[in-house]
Design a protein around this nucleic acid. Sequence first.
DNA 1: TTGATATTTAGATAATCATCTAAATCTTAT
DNA 2: ATAAGATTTAGATGATTATCTAAATATCAA
Lengths: 93, 93
Amino acid sequence: MNDTFKALSDPTRRKILQLLKEKDMSAGDIADQFNISKPSISHHLNILKQARLVQDERQGQNIIYSINLTVMQEAMGWFLGMIGTKGESTHDE
Amino acid sequence: MNDTFKALSDPTRRKILQLLKEKDMSAGDIADQFNISKPSISHHLNILKQARLVQDERQGQNIIYSINLTVMQEAMGWFLGMIGTKGESTHDE
DNA sequence: TTGATATTTAGATAATCATCTAAATCTTAT
DNA sequence: ATAAGATTTAGATGATTATCTAAATATCAA
């Protein structure tokens, strides 16, 4: 969960996720959307990958990235737990 | 929104929010829950405050912190937007 | 196999961040 | 007014991070 939030804390990485929400994209196509070097984007993609927020698959010369909505939902679960009735305990009592 | 995610990226700050979800607490009582100096906790509280994730109010010698669920809900809205049907565009077309 | 394209890895650097101690501020009680 | 308690501010330090350029790896095409 910490990796997830750390990964989401950078605006470039959040924008990458928003791009991948629309459609799967190659690393190069993703990099073209930013004024940042390709190695830096590769680094961001790696952080997203370690957090399992994205998956990658090689297709010929390209590596295609796609979003992992399952992990996104898990993160949203954290918010749901927080927004539950104020003062409500996590465990039954 | 960036301030929000930045604020949420630290585990100590997330734990503070979980404490405040249960009940409002003074800065000192919050600090007692961690093996971290009071000034450091004060710093974390300030970051949460700038992100408007918490509010504070002085009560005598103490300063009482409370969670701001509205901002939490806004952050969750970002996730809802992400989890919408894959490939679905934000604007109508 | 050689060359071109796509992507990552390595290594360096400047900026940001979490943390600490010491000192300052604010409030209450004597 | 002074002392005590609660909290924050100031300033410093070590760790993490985002970024870059240069070099390495992998795939495809000729």
